[in-house]
Amino acid sequence: MILRVIMAAYESVIKAIGLDNWCAEPDENAPMSMAQFLARNGNGNPDNSDPILPFPSLDTLHEVCSSIPQTRDLTAWVEDSFLSIKDGLKLVLDPLTQPLSWMLDSALYVFTTVPWWILIPLLVLLTWCVTRRRGVTIFVAAVFIFFGVIDHLEVALQTLAIIFVCTGLSVLLGVPIGIMMSRSDRMQRLTVPVLDLLQTLPSFVYLIPLIFLFSVTESKLYGIAIILYAIVPIIRLTDLGIRLVDRDVIEAADAFGMNARQKLLGVELPLALPNIMAGVNQTIMMSLAMVVIASLVSAPGLGVLVLRGIRNLELGVGIVAGLGIVLLAVVLDRSSKAALSRLHAHKPNQ
């Protein structure tokens, strides 16, 4: 009864501002309201109890005046406009990102076909080369042996392969972007909101448009998702690192007539290197976080096992794989931190 009155009130408001001519007759084919949409999916209570005072939302006003769009029109509009630019976007992005698929596929191929007795010593040697720490190297070797013993070596190596490729590309793209940001305040003002967005968007959300753009069977789909997520810290820290370089030293470089390139390569980047390496460390950790979520869109590796644990309620499988990811995280964190601290210490004997 009261509802009638309220709706009548909304109607008279519309009349009062002279919109009643514009309101068309109700359309039988209109999409359902948001409430109906939620009810159909089984969550949200079917509305048998009308609220006393319905919020003048799009759906409510639509009942009074059918020319006012419904909320579902909005989501449909987003969908339509995305679909309408999709083909054009795909035409540009597809060839542009194709190398990413090749890289991921070949890295996965290498990491899964090279025999373990070559690959593991190589990886341990790599650890030694970047860290020069006996402790870290032994730990890394032990972790690989452990993975081998519990038959998780292959999946762990798949995860590692994806991380290597994605981190490498993030650095390759992120450092130049960071340098450009440090050069111009305007560029920084434009870039920071984008970085904030990438960092705060729930990671599932940017899988959605990617699924529309690329087929789920292509590895670049998860590659892009991981890079978008992991590239943020390396950009931020490159920018910060260069901006933090001592003004006096830059001035000296200018006073001795260095050109922009000499200054960048000889002064700014070397002095920003500790910060950049801290960015690399964070980028690695973030790609590891994302590679698990990327299993939803066919990324191989430990994440697949975690997902299986959730989907099939296979508790043990999920937890062991989860702990495996933790181990991998510790390995990567320790190695990159050790490499970082090697930069911090100025070694007079070198």
């Binding site: 006096d248 001035e251 200018d254 006073a255 001795f256 007539g257 000889g266 002064v267």
Partner: peptide, 21 residues
């Protein structure tokens, strides 16, 4: 200008401004 800074004048700074690396 770069030529002039390289060849005709050089500068000494209060805080030394040496390259630490």
């Amino acid at each position: 200008l770069l030529q002039t800074r390289q060849k005709s004048m050089s500068m000494v700074f209060q805080n030394f401004a040496l390259l630490p690396h």
